[in-house]
Simulated scan of single mutants.
Amino acid sequence: MSYGIKLRVWGEYALFSRPEMKVERVSYDVMTPSAARGILEAIHWKPAIRWVVDRIHVMKPIRFENIRRNEVATKASGNRVIHATHERQQRASLLLRDVEYIIEAHFEMTDKRGPEDTPEKHYNMMLRRARQGQCFHRPYLGCREFPANFELVEEDTVPASPAFQGEQDLGYMLLDLTFTVNAKGEVVRTIPHFFRARMVDGVITIPRIEDVNR
């Protein structure tokens, strides 16, 4: 039995930020694998499972739009309060407009699984929650101010993308982040992983981190 799922997501705006752009926010051309994983985890996640994104189908043409957004210059901390009125900055952002994707993914069991954690249990929980529109928190398209709508794709095959034909090189894209923690469980190092994204007939096949790092 296969435990893979297909999820259609869409929204009015999206911003999958390129990490090399330090001041102005500029989106990748399409959804990143880490953003896709975040949407899946917003619907169903437990320590016993780990989501792996297999393919991303780009269902609508890539359209960018420039807007200006209010941001603050500093980060909040336990001993520092941000006064947005005094620290507000207006910055330009290059967003994606009117996006739609189909995420193909599967989950793997982790070493944190318990006796009651079975693949069948988590697969059925994901199907039920996706069908009913349930989520732990509202999934979003790169930034929390751009909420994602979602629905389960029940068909065995994903329809061909009407927006793209042929192969397109999208350049290097963020695949995911891994973290090194110390004995206290604190993150001491964050490691980004990138891959060369190629879209064939609107479909991007996502490599595993282990294969990228060979």
Rank of each mutant, 00 (worst) to 15 (best):
P159Y: 09
F150D: 13
E71Y: 12
G11K: 12
V153A: 06
W10Y: 15
E104K: 11
P61K: 02
R63N: 09
I67M: 05
Q89V: 14
K60C: 01
S77M: 05
V212I: 11
A105I: 08
T180I: 05
V158P: 06
K75W: 04
V158G: 07
S93E: 15
I56T: 09
T118Q: 00
T205G: 03
D176E: 13
A14F: 09
R63Y: 02
R129N: 15
F16W: 09
S2D: 14
V81K: 15
P19I: 09
D156W: 01
H83G: 07
I43P: 08
R113L: 03
V30C: 11
E87I: 06
V81Y: 14
Q89Y: 08
L177N: 09
A130R: 11
E71D: 14
A163D: 03
F195H: 03
K112W: 03
V212A: 05
A76M: 08
I5N: 04
A76E: 08
C135E: 07
R69A: 09
K121V: 07
P119L: 00
E155H: 03
K112H: 11
K112L: 11
M126T: 11
W51M: 02
M126F: 15
G11A: 11
K121T: 05
F136C: 09
R37W: 08
V9C: 12
A130P: 11
V58L: 02
M125Q: 13
R37F: 03
E87T: 13
G78E: 14
V181P: 00
R113C: 03
N149E: 12
A197Y: 00
H106N: 05
R129V: 12
K184R: 08
I56N: 03
Y140P: 10
M173P: 03
G166A: 07
V52E: 11
E24V: 15
E210V: 08
M31Y: 13
D54Y: 04
V81D: 11
F194I: 03
V188H: 05
T205R: 09
L94T: 10
L40H: 12
C143K: 15
D169M: 05
N149M: 06
R214G: 08
H86Q: 15
V99Q: 08
E104Q: 12
R198Y: 02
S93R: 15
S77L: 03
S34Q: 10
L170G: 06
M21Q: 11
P47M: 05
E116K: 14
N124L: 11
L141P: 06
Q134H: 14
K46D: 13
N79S: 14
H83S: 15
P139S: 14
